[in-house]
Design a protein around this nucleic acid. Structure first.
Lengths: 336, 336
DNA sequence: CTGTTAGCGCGTTCAA
DNA sequence: TTGAACGCGCTAACAG
């Protein structure tokens, strides 16, 4: 039994190109990289370039990275939660901005059920990792020790706050807005997807804190699935309460739409019976009737800011100051 | 001026571990990989493991990949379009299924404006690429030549059809459903985002084809942005037509919601004035009033199927037959 | 038994 | 323009 086939598909190597064009690997390397202050005849250059083209040569990423100690990959790491509109926007802007600096963004959602996250470094060798709540601080430090830059998006906001601080700021803003509209007793609608706890919990905490600061009583939480039956139960519960709840913070826009659907099913409407505020500013929120009031989380700004940060840090410079909490903005429409 | 710092952060290498534990690199490798039929004393093993732990040793992905010629990375490649709910679902299922096979899925959205796509192989070295319409067939072949498996999702359906065939099938299904409900003259609402043309065009073609097959006249297209003003113009246009349009195929659910918003703004309702059918089955579609009838594209099944395909193909086996076009299903709610 | 020497894989770069 | 060596991990073959 021979060794387990070291290569089953012939990869075109630079040695191949060298042999076919009758020069050394060195020359091939110099030509293909346009090495400065090396005198290589035009004829040879052309020959090498032609051969490379003809053979379909592609430098092998692993070898190149091994030699240079650098890779052009930036890894965007998320835990297992569903990829929502907010993240999608963030990733889009980030990809584009990094591309202009020659960096390639790849995204990986890390399911808890999968192999330990450490295995990721065996598979990918990023120059930087953007840790969107998938790594604990301890884990992040392990990564840093192997020479990989680790950035945590939410650090951008609130001058060095944590991810939870950022999420918390969102819940806080929801309550502020409801309170400003005169609502004194609030409900909080949580999603029924456990994977979102990392977002939902701090948002709820932020709402609680805002209530405390504003002298309101604690928000009354209910969990709801994304259908009118489930949200209807939550709505019915809030109505039964003696505390006379009039405003609902929803975990996000989809949950908010669910709450509105539950209300509609019971002949209630917003903001008359309950004022409702979501998070994310998804397109659908602007298209329904009544149009959804929501908190926009500034993901596009965050994406651009992150790109600059990554580039700076990789060059050894300090990241610029972040966009600040004012990037979290209420989009006021019909439901509050 | 010295060479541009070959390493700015000290990486812990296996040689380091070897030196610190007073053995050879070979031994370190054997211990850390639990090499079979190698007898290494418990004491040595422990010493090496301890040292590795203490130093925080992590094998260097690049070197490992270089040696093995294989990586565990599967690259999911998309063009520049917005990452919608459908893709998100696909990616989620795919990630999970691949993880169980020791494969890591990473996703990359390739902006047209960025460097040529070939550079991606310089940065990442995937075992397989899932080409969601980002690579032309020619490009895909170049990739294949460098030993990378390339799969195209839509090939799964329709027994070897193309991506366009699959998208086309969606438009076809929309028309079938509207026709079955008695609608004979149709409109087609296109998105105003150029980047979606790769999806929109074949969907429209599929709709046209279905109309031809069913003896209906061509659908009348209108472009709309995701707001009621823009969609209102489209709605007004369709109303003015003498051909008496009664059913609208929307590019996707968001466009469908926009059309409904435009109708609402003019005092029209669905399905009375226009029947409307979307694509994607986004959560919001089920939560609005009237609830949106839509075409579900079976992304979850596709994700699982793709995972199996990738695993099979990497093992040299043939991919299993795909889920077939029946995975495209109409979800009938209120608007048709 | 226990462990080492040697050399591969691929691209880059110094010294000649 | 090139030979040689390097970066790092893996492993066949061999020595103590």
């Amino acid at each position: 039994m021979p060794a387990p086939e070291p290569r089953e598909t012939a990869r075109v190597t630079s040695a191949e190109v060298a042999r076919h064009s009758g020069v050394s690997r060195t020359t091939v390397s110099y030509v293909l990289n346009g090495a400065p202050n090396q005198s290589i005849s035009e004829a040879t250059k052309r020959r090498v370039l032609d051969t490379a083209e003809r053979l379909g040569y592609t430098p092998y990423a692993a070898a190149r990275a091994l030699r240079s100690g650098r890779s052009d990959v930036v890894l965007f790491l998320t835990p297992e939660w569903p990829i929502g509109a907010a993240i999608a926007r963030l990733v889009e802007d980030l990809t584009l901005a990094l591309a202009t600096a020659g960096l390639t963004l790849v995204m990986h959602a890390h399911p808890r059920s999968a192999r330990p996250i450490a295995d990721l470094w065996k598979a990918i060798n990023p120059a930087a990792v953007i840790n969107h709540q998938a790594l604990s601080e301890d884990e992040a430090n392990v990564v840093r020790r192997s020479g990989i830059t680790v950035l945590t998006p939410a650090f951008a906001f609130a001058g060095g706050g944590t991810f939870a601080d950022f999420q918390s700021g969102i819940g806080h803003r929801q309550v502020e807005h409801l309170a400003a509209a005169g609502h004194r007793r609030l409900g909080f609608a949580l999603p029924d997807d456990d994977r979102l706890a990392a977002f939902a919990q701090p948002r709820l905490n932020g709402a609680r804190q805002a209530c405390a600061e504003l002298g309101l009583s604690e928000p009354v939480t209910r969990v709801t699935a994304l259908n009118a039956v489930s949200s209807g139960r939550a709505v019915a519960y809030w109505r039964r309460l003696k505390s006379e709840i009039t405003g609902i913070c929803a975990y996000n826009d989809e949950v908010a739409l669910a709450v509105l659907a539950g209300m509609r099913a019971q002949g209630l409407n917003a903001p008359g019976d309950f004022a409702v505020i979501g998070v994310d500013d998804i397109p659908a929120g602007a298209l329904t009737s009544p149009a959804l009031t929501t908190v926009a989380t500034g993901m596009s700004e965050l994406g651009k800011y992150l790109a600059i940060s990554v580039i700076n840090v990789l060059e050894g410079a300090a990241p610029p100051p972040g966009p600040g909490p004012e990037a979290i903005q209420v989009i006021s429409r019909d439901t509050v």
